[in-house]
Design a protein around this nucleic acid. Structure first.
Length: 244
DNA sequence: TCCCAGGGGCCGA
DNA sequence: TCGGCCCATGGG
């Protein structure tokens, strides 16, 4: 795949949707530069302290296979209970922790996952960020969650691949769908400039675009990726077939 | 009522 | 290694 292809896709998505403000930080909602849901569009300097990094990390676990609206409620309750650090989570009763995060679904599993992550972060030096390998060793942290934490909490240059990314590339016929997580991750990291804001924004834009347009039953008529006349091949093979 | 969400662990083949 | 199953709430 030509590297310019993924950059063209990025430019088109950015022009259509603008900065997405990921990762939102609930504890800063309403403050200068943040909307009432904690989004901070176009500013990639957050999180800035251990508490904010921890909130993003908790959110990455809570967001597993769960809509963000449900995650927001859980984060809000964690904040209300004053759980802002790994130590806070670890000393909080498990049954009560489970109740706080009920809205995020899979609450029995996720309460244990939050504890496992907290135990890891407590044992780990908070000064320099954890490695990908270390995070993957933590129970409940898979590749997507690890990369989300590294990119959005620790500003480490890791491209986040999710089900939306996979669907988008399948519809471009850029992948078959049988590729593993790391294969798809490499497609992006090999093609894109090493730029933190680009990585952060690209993943967020893919989520926005696929949720909104590239659904299971896609809305190709208004797809911003079908307006590029200079593309030599697709842009979206699915859309081309769809229009026939 | 059904389907899907900003996945990951576990288990059997 | 890989597919299938389980976890679970809430909104459309």
């Amino acid at each position: 795949m030509k590297s310019s292809f993924l950059i063209t896709v990025y430019d088109l998505l950015y022009n259509e949707y603008g900065p997405q403000g990921w990762w939102p930080i609930k504890s800063l909602s309403g403050q200068n530069g943040f909307d009432d849901r904690g989004y901070h569009r176009g500013d990639y300097s957050y999180p800035r302290n251990p508490e904010q990094r921890f909130e993003v990390s908790l959110g990455a676990v809570l967001a597993q296979n769960t809509s963000w609206r449900n995650v927001e409620q859980a984060i809000e309750k964690l904040l209300e209970a004053g759980l802002c650090s790994p130590e806070d989570i670890l000393k909080y009763p498990l049954t009560e922790l489970t109740e706080l995060i009920r809205s995020a679904g899979y609450f029995n599993q996720k309460a244990i996952k939050l504890r496992a992550l907290s135990a890891f972060l407590k044992a780990h030096s908070q000064k320099n960020h954890p490695s990908r390998r270390e995070l993957l060793y933590v129970w409940g942290i898979g590749p997507e969650t690890a990369d989300s934490i590294l990119l959005y909490a620790y500003h480490d240059l890791q491209f986040v691949v999710d089900a939306y990314t996979r669907r988008l590339l399948i519809r471009f016929e850029a992948i078959t769908g049988r590729e593993g997580y790391d294969d798809i991750r490499t497609i992006f990291s090999a093609s894109l400039p090493k730029d933190l804001s680009l990585y952060s924004e690209y993943h967020a834009l893919i989520v926005r675009h696929v949720k909104e347009r590239c659904r299971k039953l896609p809305l190709c008529q208004t797809c911003p990726l079908l307006r590029e006349p200079s593309s030599e091949k697709n842009l979206c093979a699915y859309g081309i077939n769809y229009k026939k």
